[in-house]
């Protein structure tokens, strides 16, 4: 009798229970971060300068994206300017880096980065590596950064500098930026840091649906219109004027070895990538 009672008791208990759930699968794997990414820069002497730059130049002007602010606080901007100018690295202006190129004003770097609405894991193309600073800022947010520089000495120097500073995921190419980087397309975001007479259609073509392209459009040595080009989910392309800036011309070709075209030309303008008008 006892075993029948126990069985009946167990059966009664079982009837009041939820049906047994199948076993939980193991938790899905989060996308793997490349080793050593994002690079950390601790202990340099310019941490306070970067904090000052963020709190005095960027936040008051409306930069609010935390990932952008974090990137600007982290990337050692002084490592991207000539030694003689390191004392000015965090000032609110562009600085010359040689070869008639400049590193953009910090606000411009932050503002253009913020407009791209980058998330970790996105793929971004930069035209106009220059010193590599902008690429480094992008690479603090997402590891998948591809950058093109038309001037070979700058491309080589930027590549070496980025590697030394731990930005090993950034790929630098010496090439004609007008045609983008077909092999790695499409991109979630594209940034051009040199003035272009028009929006290069190859770059629009290499933009993913839902992607954003930002570039200064206008005469090379006057004021350009900073423009955001967005491709929606249906592939329709629209542009929006943001504000006035000044950038160096989108010059370039690789000479006669490759089929020519205009390419990226560095970062910022001699006069400065000023955020005029914003």
């Amino acid at each position: 009798m006892r075993w029948r009672a126990a069985f009946l008791l167990l059966a009664a208990l079982a009837c009041g229970q939820e049906p047994a759930k199948p076993p939980e699968p193991p938790p899905s794997q989060a996308p793997e971060r490349p080793p050593g990414w994002p690079p950390q820069h601790k202990g340099d002497l310019f941490g306070k300068n970067r904090e000052w730059m963020v709190t005095k130049q960027l936040v008051p002007r409306g930069i609010s994206d935390e990932s952008v602010l974090r990137a600007m606080r982290t990337v050692p901007r002084h490592s991207f300017v000539p030694v003689a100018l390191r004392g000015h690295a965090y000032e609110d202006r562009p600085l010359p880096i040689g070869h008639d190129q400049t590193i953009s004003q910090p606000f411009i770097v932050a503002s253009m980065t913020e407009e791209l609405r980058l998330k970790e894991g996105m793929k971004v193309l930069e035209i106009g590596t220059g010193s590599g600073y902008q690429a480094a800022v992008l690479a603090q947010i997402t590891p998948h950064v591809f950058t093109i520089e038309i001037k070979e000495p700058l491309a080589i120097a930027a590549r070496d500098r980025l590697r030394e500073l731990g930005y090993r995921t950034v790929q630098v190419r010496h090439a004609d930026g007008y045609y983008g980087w077909k092999e790695e397309a499409p991109f979630d975001a594209i940034m051009v840091t040199a003035a272009a007479p028009h929006v290069p259609p190859p770059l629009v073509e290499q933009l993913k649906q839902g992607g954003r392209l930002i570039l200064p459009v206008g005469p090379p040595l006057g004021t350009q219109d900073l423009r955001l080009v967005a491709k929606d989910e249906k592939g329709k392309v629209r542009s929006r004027s943001l504000y006035d800036v000044r950038f160096v011309p989108l010059t370039g070709s690789l000479g006669e070895e490759k089929k020519g075209g205009a390419g990226g030309g560095g970062e910022g303008a001699k006069e400065g990538g000023e955020g005029a008008g914003k």
Partner: peptide, 21 residues
């Protein structure tokens, strides 16, 4: 002759053809 030149005032953003040569 300027290989770097892509002179095309008013070019469509989605133009399949780029000014070259």
């Amino acid at each position: 002759v300027v290989p770097a030149l892509h002179y095309a005032p008013g070019l469509s953003l989605t133009s399949p053809v780029f000014p070259e040569g």
